[in-house]
């Protein structure tokens, strides 16, 4: 299992569009993917789950993935979140 801690870096946090982007990216990989915040852990491939986190700017998330391409998945998603979704 691979884990990484990231900080949400875009102004409005993980609202619908960024959440959709995360889920869309995650589903390209075969590994299982979870996002954890303050003890709440959701499936990173479920859009409702990711949105329900309501992660604001500055929130600290723990990403974890398990599977053949876990490393790449974490790398890509972490870059996306910390890069503020390209904004």
């Amino acid at each position: 299992m691979i884990q990484k801690t990231v900080t949400v870096n875009n102004e409005h946090g993980l609202h619908a569009r960024p959440a959709a982007l995360i889920v869309r990216t995650a589903t390209k990989f075969r590994s299982d993917f979870f996002i954890e915040r303050d003890g709440v852990k959701v499936n990173g491939k479920s859009i409702m789950g990711v949105m329900m986190l309501a992660a604001e700017n500055g929130a600290v998330l723990t990403l974890s993935a398990e599977g053949v391409d876990a490393e790449y998945l974490i790398e890509e998603i972490a870059a996306m979140i910390e890069g503020g979704f390209g904004t």
Partner: peptide, 10 residues
């Protein structure tokens, strides 16, 4: 609703 929740947290 998600936006509201995020704003509250902030």
């Amino acid at each position: 609703k998600i936006h509201e929740e995020i704003r509250k947290q902030t």
